[in-house]
Design a protein around this nucleic acid. Sequence first.
DNA 1: GGTCTTTTTAGACTACGTCCAATTATCGGC
DNA 2: GCCGATAATTGGACGTAGTCTAAAAAGACC
Lengths: 141, 141
Amino acid sequence: MKQRSDEHHLAEQLEKAGIRPSAQRVAIAGYVLSTADHPSADEVWQRVKTDFPMVSRATVYNTLQLFTEHGLLRQLVLAEGCVVFDPKVEPHHHFVDDATGAIEDIPWAALRVAKVDDLEGVDVREYMVVVRGRRRGKKAP
Amino acid sequence: MKQRSDEHHLAEQLEKAGIRPSAQRVAIAGYVLSTADHPSADEVWQRVKTDFPMVSRATVYNTLQLFTEHGLLRQLVLAEGCVVFDPKVEPHHHFVDDATGAIEDIPWAALRVAKVDDLEGVDVREYMVVVRGRRRGKKAP
DNA sequence: GGTCTTTTTAGACTACGTCCAATTATCGGC
DNA sequence: GCCGATAATTGGACGTAGTCTAAAAAGACC
């Protein structure tokens, strides 16, 4: 149920982002740029294969990387199945250093989130703020 | 450089949490309950093996699971290497459904985080709130 | 049409995690 | 202390997600 105009529009979108629109890339874009899911890379591969059986896994991974570099996608690192352990069991927030990937704890009181209780339709069990950035000064003189 | 009293203290801590303190569990606890790192399960295994060469991977994974169930550890799902893609590139927050694992977007304006700019020693690139819980009502009559 | 660059491909390889059946350790009662 | 029941541990098979590479295919340009 693909429309030629859809593909044309997608190709334009890729070009606008500075990406050459190959057939594979258009097929991948057709799924990943419009879905409300938050698919993993392999899920994208599985999905795209149904339309485009000959696409290789490497292509899908490379293409998602490319889209991300050009600002068409964001990578989230909060999915299930990828777990680290923290002996500090009280609620607290987290800081992730862009340079090293290290995770540090931020005390609960250092931040405050307003309006969590106003969220409609959900029972909140817990929440945390994830801050990403770089440690300042310290090392570089 | 292990102190007998340390091990004794750890064993007590496990018992207090309702866990039978086997030698392997004490060794695992000795690392994971006191570290400031946020190790992955495999990192814990690598580490514990240096003290306790015969421990099997299954034991470490089971034990971490057990500690988590008994409240000695928390699992964080925000580490690198575990990525999902989101075509919505503007800043927004995320809701993770405990029941299904599905990730939903929360509009940026629905929450507000106070004091992010007060964090000392870091240059913040981005941040988001991760809310976990359950969707209410809707489906069940 | 030829050539130079970009893209894609298949498959080997690694890392991480799960599962299971068999073995070993531990506990409580005698 | 010994014994049977229960709990814990083991190693290895298995599965899945992801990376890497060398070679083939496609596309751009003259």
